[in-house]
Design a binder for these strands. Structure first.
Lengths: 220, 220
DNA sequence: ATACTATTCAATTAATCAATTGAATATTTG
DNA sequence: CAAATATTCAATTGATTAATTGAATAGTAT
């Protein structure tokens, strides 16, 4: 029994997964794929990378079996190999938040309104899902909403919010959410809605966290 | 509001944590530190690295704020900066097991008896903690046992087990555990004890998983 | 058939990472 | 004090990673 070799080989497999996510672009790609399947050029655009570079990063994730692909015509669509792959991002996020002062500094620098907003926890929203006076507002792009969203949520993509305010009843409380803890769409929605006199709060996490917690979702 | 920059900076911090654990030696170091604080030369020995190399890897973990150090005389002792850092290893392990066929292949190659042994889950052991006929056997080195162990466990380090069999009542059921899912001490203990007619099963995970689940622990 | 398009592949270059080496630093002992 | 020791530091070397570039491949439309 060669323990040393066993240990080494096992830890090499664990490191293989860690290496695959040890790059900021690849983390962002996983985050986007957790919203729903995406083509290479869509991912490239969203992450401000060249198609060739995005493709290389996707091959790295694929080598580690974290994503899978299907081809349709000219396009290749990627998705998470298993939804639990998103747990890698979650755990990294939680540990980084806990251990790195830089995370707070970055959040406080860019999201200056967050300190004054009490977010809604997943659990709180779960208990209020059937509340008649509550609007759950998904401000991600409509495609993402249709691929999966919190049960009962309605969709107004952030870039349409200003022009579609009239669709939202001012008497109701709104919980806005988007892609995850570091997605800014919901922060922007809270700002806009607050300026227009709405009672609105941001959901603390995002759709992938909700889904991964096996809470009620819908697709369109 | 520069979303692109915010996204990039946040993901760089997440990647910083991932990079720190994206090395097999560093994963093993975290695993060992989860058993309790350790000096550099002890870590170097256990991981079959030079002291200089171990020290370099420790500096990498330290840069990512995953470990902390205290000095005592000539020696520097390292520990996890927070016990939840072990969650990185747990998550990587779970995703690797789920996504990489290589993990099963490696385990089946080196731990050939595992397929025929039904392990005890943490939950099952928790419900049986006060069972009078059950012996919980910690087969890690005695130092690790003293730094922290499952409440009510007794210690016989694996390298002393053959010579101390007489201390174990053959009429009782034994649950053996060690450092974690890929620690082989408990497998070896099961083999030895089974050969000698004991009724013994391995705990599925190890002490750090037990501790991280906030289940009852003791120190000596 | 040609032209266009989405993606991958492979090569190149620069940056980063890992192991080793030996010196430097700090502590302990006789 | 000198000698021994545990660890870190810094430099070197070789390996790996990331971005870019342009060619190759496969699919679609005319």
């Amino acid at each position: 029994m060669d323990h040393r070799t066993f240990k080494t080989e096992i830890n090499e497999q664990l490191a293989r997964i860690a290496k695959a996510v040890a790059n900021p672009h690849r983390l962002e790609i996983i985050d986007l794929l957790a919203q729903g399947e995406r083509s290479v050029d869509a991912l490239a655009q969203e992450t401000a990378m060249s198609v060739a570079n995005a493709s290389q990063h996707l091959q790295a994730l694929r080598e580690a079996r974290l994503i899978t692909a299907r081809k349709e015509g000219l396009r290749v669509y990627y998705r998470l190999a298993d939804y639990t792959v998103y747990r890698l991002v979650q755990t990294l996020r939680e540990i980084a938040q806990q251990q790195l002062a830089e995370v707070d500094r970055i959040v406080n620098t860019y999201l200056t309104q967050r300190a004054s907003m009490e977010p809604v926890t997943l659990n709180e929203l779960l208990t209020r899902l059937r509340e008649p006076g509550l609007v759950i507002l998904d401000v991600r792009p409509a495609l993402e909403y249709s691929q999966g969203h919190i049960a009962g949520a309605r969709s107004i993509p952030i870039d349409e919010l200003e022009s579609r305010l009239h669709e939202l009843p001012q008497a109701q409380e709104i919980v806005a959410y988007c892609r995850g803890e570091y997605c800014v769409f919901a922060d922007e929605a809270v700002e806009i809605l607050t300026e227009h006199g709405y009672h609105v709060r941001r959901l603390q996490l995002g759709y992938p966290d909700w889904k991964l917690a096996d809470l009620p979702t819908e697709t369109e």
